[in-house]
Every structure is written in structure tokens, then in C-alpha cells.
Design a protein around this nucleic acid. Sequence first.
DNA 1: CCGTCTAGGGAAACCGGTTGACTGAAACTT
DNA 2: AAGTTTCAGTCAACCGGTTTCCCTAGACGG
Lengths: 346, 346
Amino acid sequence: MPEQPVRARLVDVAERAGVSKATVSKVLNGRQDLSVRPETRRRVHEAAEALGYRPHSGARALAGASTHALALLVPALNNPTYVTIARGAYQRARELGYLSLLAEDFDGQEADESFNDLVQEGRVDGLLIASARPSHPLLDALSRSPVPHVFLNRSVEGSGRNVTMDVARSSVTALDHLHSLGHRAVGHIAGPPGITPSEVRKEAFLRHAEELGLSAAPVASGDFTEDGGVACALELLRPADGGTRPPVTALYTSSLAQAIGAMAAVRHLGLRIPEDVSVVGNDDLPVVAHLSPPLTTVAMPLYELGAAAVEALVAAIQGAPLGDVVVPTEPCLMLRRSTARPGERP
Amino acid sequence: MPEQPVRARLVDVAERAGVSKATVSKVLNGRQDLSVRPETRRRVHEAAEALGYRPHSGARALAGASTHALALLVPALNNPTYVTIARGAYQRARELGYLSLLAEDFDGQEADESFNDLVQEGRVDGLLIASARPSHPLLDALSRSPVPHVFLNRSVEGSGRNVTMDVARSSVTALDHLHSLGHRAVGHIAGPPGITPSEVRKEAFLRHAEELGLSAAPVASGDFTEDGGVACALELLRPADGGTRPPVTALYTSSLAQAIGAMAAVRHLGLRIPEDVSVVGNDDLPVVAHLSPPLTTVAMPLYELGAAAVEALVAAIQGAPLGDVVVPTEPCLMLRRSTARPGERP
DNA sequence: CCGTCTAGGGAAACCGGTTGACTGAAACTT
DNA sequence: AAGTTTCAGTCAACCGGTTTCCCTAGACGG
């Protein structure tokens, strides 16, 4: 009855299989620089299975091999966008034999801490960085002690290791939808300056607005939060001097939270959605279907983004050359009731 | 110019300080079983500082010491409740010299995976488990190979290691508020059966409803999601046979998402909030202030919960006896516009 | 029949910390 | 003055893997 539920070690497996530590290690890691009889190989696998053997990650890391762990740095977890990305990353990592850890990097505040805890202490083999922004302290740390990494969602120009989505396309999709409904004056609520997807979305919005010949396409920038959305919406909806009606009939926002804030602002001004103002957001999550009215959004391939970033990073760790990647899945318009022809019920 | 930004090791620090590895290790770990001159101590710290020394977590773990990492297992990260808990845990862990990792355990689906990856591979010293539920596979794994752990939010009866909030109090607070507004028939939207906070909230609701002498206090159970809220609200608001008005004038929900779903259901039925139905949710997050109408909620001390759980776990790891803990911070009513006297504008 | 080659696998040196046993010198006792 | 403490730190054996180099036996070639 003196149970000993101690972890099985490599030597235990070796002993049970009747071979040496070295052989077990090589077999389990699938190295082909060693020839073993199929029968031995089978015995080793059987013994490992029977003992529930799991290599000690620390020992492994120490011995010069990798930790088989990655870390995903996101700017804010209360933004569900990043949760979806994290899920995609976790899943794909698992399929590739890696563990994906999640760390919140409050817009650079904690970057150094995380970097130290995770990279310097040798807990991970590489970083998936979704929290990049210009002059982010992390960029410094990375150049001082290089570690494999990719940037996802928010890219770093010229790094040659960006994994992104077709963000420009999301603006085109949203604008085409609004234009086809008859909107000719559309406002865009962008994110903070310097953040890539925000910038790209804005540029694409302005470019396509011109292509469509819109009469007005004003832009306001603010935080990716509800409050940011409120402030920008109020700015964009303020009637021109002497006027009484808002200068735009539709709003297109960079984030979901901004869309929620914008809707609140529209109501606050005594305007109706979508009769007076149509609203289109980005990212599709369960909550948007239960807003009042349900929000039309552009769904982005967030899960795929996380997965693609992991693939790129793991390839890099294994020595493959790195390059920018764009997730092929196209943004997809999710039609709900927050958009309609100007002045009309949905 | 051949920079070598290689990590500084213990021996490097030792060499620079002119002492042995052992001394450095003991000094840096603040062991008092060793006497060192203050001057030596200073030299060691200086050298470590100068070299930016960070102990290799793997080596440390291997040498029998701890990894100085914990893992927090949450059932769903898109529930912002758990994000707040995670932040509290991360921060307090950091203050105690630990790193708190975050893992999503989709209601037991991934528990074994996480357990293997994190515990069996020796990446963490202990677990903070927020995803417990009856017959959760994790409970098995824990009894097979014991590892320090606490349960938070969702408790496990009789485990003697539960860290919780005064959830019963949140029901009392919500009911008192509604009662003082004149509501005498209140419905409760509970979470799935078997989940502790959900059960406790329900019991407290029923008990206090009786104490207040409410004329009706029906309960419906559903998922913690928006859709769960919709279904429960429709059930609770269905007029009695032959009747035409809903049997309750207010709804109190177990989760925030349920409240959002409930609000959507109320609107769907053509009823107004709060004139026809008042709604109170649990947990206070930025988004609730931007709903239509802004939602009255009971704010729970989630951040404190995360912090308290870490404190308890770290104490346990360091050998202290473990016991159930209740976070002392009281739930707090956040008054907004989703509640009013029955039939009245706010 | 002897030498060489190759398949199959083992021995041991690491990796970077931690820890308990141990030592040399100084200070204190008696 | 010799023995005993205390002080201040050192030595070396681990921890559990990985990896390089080496060994051995049989096959094969000549």
C-alpha cells in the first residue's frame, strides 16, 4: 500500500524496456541518426505507455533541447478577439507537440516582466507577439537577446516575420455593404495611431471610400474600448455648423467594443439604429447577436490567425526561413439588424 | 563585435563576485542557513545585477527546488469574469515571486491535457483550479498524482481548500434592492446544476425571497451564456395559463452573459426594461454601462479572489496547512438604469 | 580465413542550478 | 596554550534528460 505515484523517469522506462537511457531518448524523440530494431522500438514505446512517462520539461530544456513551449503575448484579454486567437494558437501548438502559454502584456507595461519570466528563465522556445506597437520595450529586449518570434495581428514593418489577416479587405467588405444599401456618407472609428491593423483598416477605408465616390468619409481615432467608441461616435455624428442632422448615415468601427460604445452614443443622441445611423463592427462573437439591435459585423479569421502564427513560429524554431504570412481566409460579413437603407427600417 | 548576449549563468555571477556557485545560490535565494558577510552579500547582488542574471527555471526545477510557477485553470476565457480573476492571480503571484500561467479548461475537455503538460512535465508547482465541477476528470488525476492545489470560485465540497467569495450575499444584495423598489415577484436565472457559485446563489435567492415574503420567486437554470439567459428569461416571463402579463416583474441572473441574453429576450417579447421588467446581473465590467439600458449589477471581488487564491496556494506550497478561505470584500451593488419601481421609468 | 563494415545500442559527459556535508581560520573558553 | 565554537564559505553529488563517441557482433568481401 505504500503507493508511489512518483513520476516515471527516463531510466524507469529504460529499465522496463531492457535498454539504456540513450536508446529510449532517441526512440521517443524519433531521431533517425540511430538504428534500432522495430522490435526494440516497440518495447520502448510500450514501456513508456505503461508507465505513463512524460519527460520532465526542465531536464529537457537543460540538456540543450527545447522546452516545447511557446508564449503568446496579447495586449488585453478582456478583448475577446485575443481569446479566439489564443485558442487557435493553443490548438495548433498542441498538434505540433508544443504547449502555448498565454501572457497579458498591458500595452508594454509588462513586456519586460514577461520577457524575463518566460524567455530569460528559459521557459519557452519562442514568442508569439500580438501586442507590438512602435517603440515597444519588447523590441529592444528582443534585439538584445534574440529568441525566435513572430508578430501576429499587429505587425512590425520590415521585420519579415508578420502573420496577419486581410484587414484591408474587411474595410472593403463593410463599405461595399453600406454603399450597396445606399449610404454615401460613412464615418470610420479607427483605433489608436501606430497600431497596424488599425492603420491598415483606416487606409483601406479611405481608399475604397474614394473608389466608391462617397460624398464624405470622416475618420476619428480612439481607444479600442467602449469609451473610445463613444467619444469617436459623438465626434463623427456632430452636425456641421448650423446643421441639425449628423453628417454621416453610417459608422464602421475598428473593434467590437468600439461598436458597442458607438451604439450607446447614437442612442444617447436620440438617434435610432439603423433608421438614422447604421453601424458595422469588426469581429463576430456571440454577444453581438444579443445587442439591441443585433450588430452587423465583419467576422475575421482569428482562430486561423492564431494557428498560422504558431505554424510559422514552430517552423522558424526548427530552422526554416521566416517570411511574412497572410491568413488566406477572407473576412466575412455577418448581416444583422444594425444596418439598413438610410432612413428605413431593416 | 562578436557579441555574445548569452544568458548569464550562476557560475558567471560567482566568478564576477569572487565566490563559489553555492554561495551565490544561497545568497540569492535568501537562505539563512548560511552566514555571509554583508559585504560579500552585496558583491553577489551587484554581480547578479550587472550581468542581468536570471536563474534558469528548468535547472532550478531539476535541482529539486520549485519552478516558481503556478497554473490557473479556467473554464472559459471569453467569460471576462475569469480574466479579472486571472489578473488578480498574476499580480499577487508576481509579488510573491511566482509566475502565474493561464490555461483554458473547456469544462473538463482539456483538463487531462493541461494536467499532463503542466504538472506531469514539471512546469508548475501548483494549480489554481477555477474549472471544478462534479466528477471532473481533474479530480481523478489529482488523487493519482497529488500536487498542491486550491479551488477557487467553484468549490469542491469537503476538499478543505476552497477559496470563494460571499456569493450568497450577492443574491441578498440584489433581492434587497429589487424589494426596496417594490418588486414582489422576482425570477432568478441560475447557472447549470452542480456548479457551486450557481447553487449557492440560487439557495440564497430562495431563502432570502422567503425572508422578504415575496409572492413568487421562480428559478430557471441554464448555461452561463447569452443563449442560456434567453432561454431562461423566456421561461420565467411566460404568462401563466390564461394570463397575459408575465408572472414576475424582475429578473436576477447568475452571470453577466445571461443578463445580456435576458435583456434581449425581454425586448423580443415586446416588453420594456425597466418599466415592464427590471434586470440585475452579476459582475461589473465596462461593457454593462454601454448596454441599452445600462445594466444594474452586483460587482463581485474577482480580482481579490484571484489574489487570495494565489496566497493560499503559495502558503500551501511552503508547507502551511490549508483551509477554506472566503474573500472578505463584500459584493457591491452598481446601480444603473435597468432597474426601477415596477411600471415606472427609472 | 581474416579484415572491414554496418547495424544496434551503451557509457558517460554534459546542461545550470541546489543542498547538505565539510573545512580553514578566527574568536572564545577554561 | 590547547580545545571548542562560530563564522564564512567551498565541494561535490545530485536532479532527469540529450548527445557524442565508442563498442560489439555478425555480415560481407576478398
